[in-house]
Design a binder for these strands. Structure first.
Lengths: 237, 237
DNA sequence: CGCTCAATTGAGAGTTTTCAATTCTCGTGG
DNA sequence: CCACGAGAATTGAAAACTCTCAATTGAGCG
């Protein structure tokens, strides 16, 4: 148990700029000259801080450099619905293009460094750089694809499979960011996981306990260690 | 009961070109000269016909002129998951931009007329026409927004509320297309509704019966008549 | 060290699914 | 035009799953 702490605490979960989702915008060959005006680098936000309030005009997109964000809407009955968790390299706010208004609140889950991308400048660059055009379309389209997978998860999976899918996808996302370990430090609480998955805190907790009994993983607070990746993938399907 | 049939059968549910989701592409002021090359008009597909198979390369987008489509993926266990229903004026296939491969199967729910929009040509037009750029970004972004609403529905609503949301959103979509009546002709089966909503056929059927007992609506086969719109909206929340 | 909030665990209630039987619809052929 | 049959839809009863409410334990912070 002690070793998990050690391993995980050492993970900072930032991302080298080459792995950033907008790396195509950052690489010198493309943007060397306009970079400074378009991309404001590494603003700092502290845990819980609201970066954007829903219903405010779209001015900028946000790219996570280190830390993590969540986006959520609040329903008329004042319930929160989390729509996504964002890790280093992820771009946030694209869904606001259609209305020019942010539909979601954007909030820091931990102390977070964020790069900001000016909306108008990005639109201009779409017109002048084919690479940028393709990248933006691709990011938008990938977002749709992700929501389709989430819908599939909601629609066809039981609670244990949903949770397994969530943990496995986090594992994959960290892997894509160069963290090859089977350890994951969750940036979000059980309540936030439950909300995102359409379950209750208790169901998430029970399923975590069940997966520990089956020795699929070890969960200790925010730290999760995957003991049996194959079994986890089996649960995912 | 008999009058419902009469009313509903008279609805053809096609859309005038001005209400099409790509009307911004069609209006003469923008595209008069290039229209013919970009937009191939009104190909006919018969009920059940597969328009695009998943995993095939993205060549065209599809715009429904009359009739209706569904998109779906098939899971490894050979289950179908419906990701969307498309009505006249809707554009289908945008989610394939990121991979250049169609993730979804696209299938006609009834005899359907479809306009095709060439992918490469559309990309070219994005570069030359700001209006087209904005429209495409808006459509993609709106798609994301729709999936977020679907996720909210899955995540926080019980079966009766989900079904009410589905019927009400169909009502709204037909209304936006100029059909102001409280009658709806469903293009899809109960099984398809259930699949889309993450429920079973039986649950959908039971909830329809319940809503009839409460005199919220009358359901007769594919025909639904909304008797009490306020009550339906209450259920939606 | 104690306080507060988060997480876990248990028991019972409510919702949805599953399995099974019946009824209804609609297209086809007599 | 009606009867038939196959698939779709409805209904019922029991099982499975998740939620709610409540109590307990655990973790993080001043």
């Amino acid at each position: 148990m002690h070793s998990i702490y050690k391993t995980l605490r050492s993970n900072s979960y930032s991302v080298p700029c080459e792995l950033c989702s907008i790396s195509g915008l950052c690489v010198p060959r493309l943007l060397n000259n306009t970079l400074s005006s378009v991309l404001e680098r590494k603003k700092s936000y502290s845990k819980e801080e609201i970066i954007v309030k829903a219903k405010t005009p779209l001015k900028k997109f946000f790219i996570v450099h280190s830390g993590a964000l969540k986006t959520f809407v609040t329903t008329p009955e004042n319930n929160e619905q989390i729509n996504g968790f964002y890790l280093p390299g992820d771009i946030v706010g694209l869904d606001a293009i259609s209305t020019k208004i942010h539909n979601n609140n954007i909030q820091a889950l931990s102390n977070t460094l964020i790069c900001e991308l000016d909306y108008d400048e990005l639109m201009n660059m779409i017109d002048t750089h084919k690479d940028v055009r393709d990248l933006v379309l691709k990011l938008l389209s990938a977002d749709i694809y992700n929501y389709q997978k989430l819908v599939l998860c909601y629609s066809q999976k039981k609670s244990d499979e949903r949770l397994a899918t969530f943990i496995y996808s986090l594992y994959l996302r960290y892997q894509q960011r160069g963290h090859t370990s089977l350890s994951i430090k969750l940036a979000m609480s059980r309540a936030e996981i439950a909300n995102y998955l359409g379950l209750t805190i208790e169901t998430v907790s029970r399923n975590l306990s069940k997966m520990q009994e089956q020795n699929i993983l070890t969960a200790k607070g925010k730290y999760i260690y995957i003991n049996n990746l194959e079994a986890l993938i089996d649960l995912v399907n």
